[in-house]
Amino acid sequence: MNWLINLGAHTLERLEMFGRAAYMLFGAIIAKPQPLKMLPLTIKQIHVVGVQSLLIIVVSGLFIGMVMALQSYTVLVDYGAEGSLGPMVALSLLRELGPVVTALLFAGRAGSALTAEIGLMKATEQLSSLEMMAVDPLRRVIAPRLWAGIISMPMLALIFSAVGILGGHIVGVDWLGVDSGSYWSIMQSTVDWNKDVVNGIIKSIVFAFVITWIATFKGYDSIPTSEGISKATTETVVFSSLAVLGLDFILTALMFGIE
């Protein structure tokens, strides 16, 4: 019987956590937004989570594009289909790798930093002191970070895909000798704006929302001790990576599964 009690307790605990997370989200972005005060804070956070993640995104995108081209070429060339290298690389990146790999990198680079920062602000009583100064920490600290994540990650995903396509060009065209004209023109005629590009952007917006929500909540809800913060940071990376992979399957099934 014990396992049943444990299961129940665990489920209740999880539900309670979801409740707290929803409450935080509501307080941060739905209840009475103050766009004028938030704008400068959000821009500062976009710099921290977005601009400072650029390097890792660009480097990863370049290498993933190069590897994609190399792998695809060895298969395609057997069928004389190496002209399709362009769409192969572009579609994989725009539909899947761009949003998903960017999201995983973003969770590790920016998500963990957000959790640790907010957790430390809690541990050093900065959040409490904001409250006592009659400044709502949800609006002052959480909301700008949420918006910054939701705005910057889709852009990072697009940059990732674009750099990846260039990387594919470097390997496929400049090194392996695929015709440059066919690389670009077949890509242009195959890639569909709505179906491929927009769907990829939608995916990355969903991922961005989930990751920043998890990251800010884990920091806000952390136990304000060193172990508490380290646990919260780990959970941010683990939970958001799993959420991204799970959601990716669901979104892919919805977008591309049923024709």
Binding site: T124, E125, Q126, S128, S129, E131, M132, M133, A134, D136
Partner: peptide
Amino acid sequence: LYEVRRQMSMLFQSGALFT
């Protein structure tokens, strides 16, 4: 409550300055 808090203030043990 937020209005009333403007009439009070608290000195935290750690100072709680914004770092």
